[in-house]
Design a protein around this nucleic acid. Structure first.
Lengths: 342, 342
DNA sequence: ATGATAGATGCAACCGCATGCATGGAGATG
DNA sequence: CATCTCCATGCATGCGGTTGCATCTATCAT
């Protein structure tokens, strides 16, 4: 059915190896022959059989991306969806395919990781916000497959020597808080998330900003949601007393901020006049709402591109020293909800 | 590095073919041997080398999905994102991997289609809302690779014999319009999209509903956006005279409906009191806004599951007759924006 | 007891490509 | 003109599976 190098060889009157070498730009082949064969291959719309190629080279020209299960939830994927888009575009440019998988076990991703790697379906892995258990980590190291952790910084003894591309969430938490304080706010309620490390880092940034301005940290102002729009809404409703006494609200995801906005509106609290609001992520959705959300921008395109580049660099040569950590700086996008414009 | 069947054979003291047969449940192997080998393979965490396997079986245990380029746009992917999620889940259950690609050429997808197929990286393709040019279609037919068109019905001479899973957009257009008419509306402005077939079908449904109730079709009430939130907003603003004289608005995507909602709010038109609003798609986002959007629900999970099942059915046996068309019925979800509750 | 039979297993070829090594021919050198 | 290089190409093997066919060993009927 599909053409093989042998077929091309027959058409060109050369051997199969010559075809293979020509198409792979081997320096052994003379310019003339190469061009002739390239021409024929193009005419015949020849494509290598990826399986055969992979079998002999032990490559797949494909990388895998492992998302945590909750990527599937609406709201969460408002953030990751755009990250994914950028990853995909970057890879497409390089003629590399992308296999998408989810870790059934939210924290390990062990299942799909092993499967994809051992079956040689991928040359490398991008692990998105996956806390990998020591066993899987050991497995990855043993196989020597390149992998890059994406999205937040993991800093434990056994993540030593691991490549990471991550946004500086401490900085982001600081930026949002510092901005509010500079606008005169002293009592800033936080809506954070309890379960994932990146939020702990954002909280750390929040505290750092308070300290800088000599504002004591008040634990009662720290509330916890689950990332969802609904939880943002619910928390504001549940703590309406607390919140009506506060002058600012810093939600650690935009989606929760939008939920909070909804609740504030129902409570007849005007944003930003009665209470200022700052979100985190800068998802595209923010400008669909009023007032437009001031938020901490995560440079998703940059994160995606750098992660791909690093992964391909690792995949390209075994000599490269592992363990590069690329930290991306978030920035504050001032829109309407913080009141800075007024 | 990774174990091969030969290694397992050595461990079990049998030949490599016996291992292969055991692991593939060949009836040739005795129960006892099979179990012994399965046990060893499990213990060793053996996995087949996908390339070698693919090379001899000509399978990939992977399917490809081709999205149109505009999937990448925010707003569009609010709809497709959820479709994708369901597809992914369905495939995961069957241990089939998914390669994601986009068609650079919005209407054909020729590039990635050919590449993935000829390289044998996929066993089948799901083509999402891709109008395929005759050449690519001919290519697909020639290779015999299974493929399923997803999302909207294509009914031209050369789509004869093609498998399709699609929602009945005519019905959806009818449902939204009919509902508004029953609520007493006579002058219903539509915000549709010009470029894609599915929207023409929705418009057809709109007209059918008008006819049913003996309302003459008024072309000036038909406006065109580009799917985006911004276009929904813009169109309402541009046609504020027209719209303030109308009593209802039927936007052919939820995202445009939400943009329109934003504009209506700015024009101080209350929804649904001053003007009723109905959307289309039933994306998760609709309940983030007020009033909650009445909309035409597209059963994306059902669409995704049926498409996968059909594709796997086709991939499973070459005997199956091609050309099954599975039509999914949309339904109306009545919320607040149409005023039916009041 | 013996040949027939069927079930279980092994052997070997093949899938399409990459690549080390052998080979052949053209040009350089003496 | 013979010999030596070196460059271009071909040959043959291996990657790790699948599978047709041969082989072997019980089991059974005669």
């Amino acid at each position: 059915m599909a053409l093989t190098t042998k077929d091309i060889a027959l058409l060109a009157g050369v051997s199969q190896s010559t075809v293979s070498r020509s198409l792979n730009n081997s320096p052994l082949i003379s310019q003339k022959t190469r061009e002739r064969i390239l021409k024929i291959a193009r005419e015949q719309e020849f494509e290598f059989n990826a399986n055969a190629r992979g079998l002999s080279t032990n490559r797949a020209d494909t990388i895998g991306i492992i998302y945590p299960d909750d990527y599937l939830e609406f709201g969460v994927n408002l953030y990751f969806g755009s990250l994914h888009t950028h990853l995909r575009q970057t890879l497409e440019k390089r003629d590399i395919d992308l296999i998408v998988a989810f870790s059934k076990n939210r924290w390990t991703g062990a299942d799909n990781v092993k499967r994809l790697v051992v079956r040689r379906k991928v040359d490398g892995l991008i692990l998105v916000r996956s806390l990998v258990d020591p066993e899987t980590l050991e497995f990855l190291r043993r196989t020597g497959i390149p992998f890059v952790f994406l999205h937040f910084h993991q800093d434990s003894p056994n993540t030593e020597g691991i490549d990471q591309v991550y946004a500086d969430h401490v900085k982001g938490g600081f930026l949002g808080t510092d901005h509010l304080i500079r606008l005169g706010h002293q009592k800033i309620v936080c809506i954070s998330v309890d379960e994932a490390e990146e939020f702990a880092q954002r909280r750390r940034g929040y505290r750092t900003a308070l300290e800088k301005h000599g504002i004591p940290y008040d634990e009662t102002l720290m509330l916890y949601g689950d990332r969802s729009f609904q939880s943002g809404y619910r928390i504001v409703k549940q703590h309406c007393d607390l919140i009506s006494k506060a002058t600012a609200l810093f939600a650690h995801t935009d989606v929760m901020a939008l939920g909070a906005l909804d609740a504030l509106r129902e409570m007849n609290l005007r944003v930003p006049e009665d209470i200022a609001l700052v979100g985190y992520d800068d998802i595209e959705l923010t400008t669909f709402f009023h007032p437009h959300l001031t938020t901490v921008h995560q440079p998703r395109e940059e994160i995606a591109v750098l992660a791909c580049e690093r992964l391909l660099e690792l995949a390209g040569s075994k000599r490269i020293k592992r363990g590069k950590e690329i930290k991306i700086q978030p920035s504050l996008v001032v829109r309407e909800s913080c009141g800075a414009r007024a």
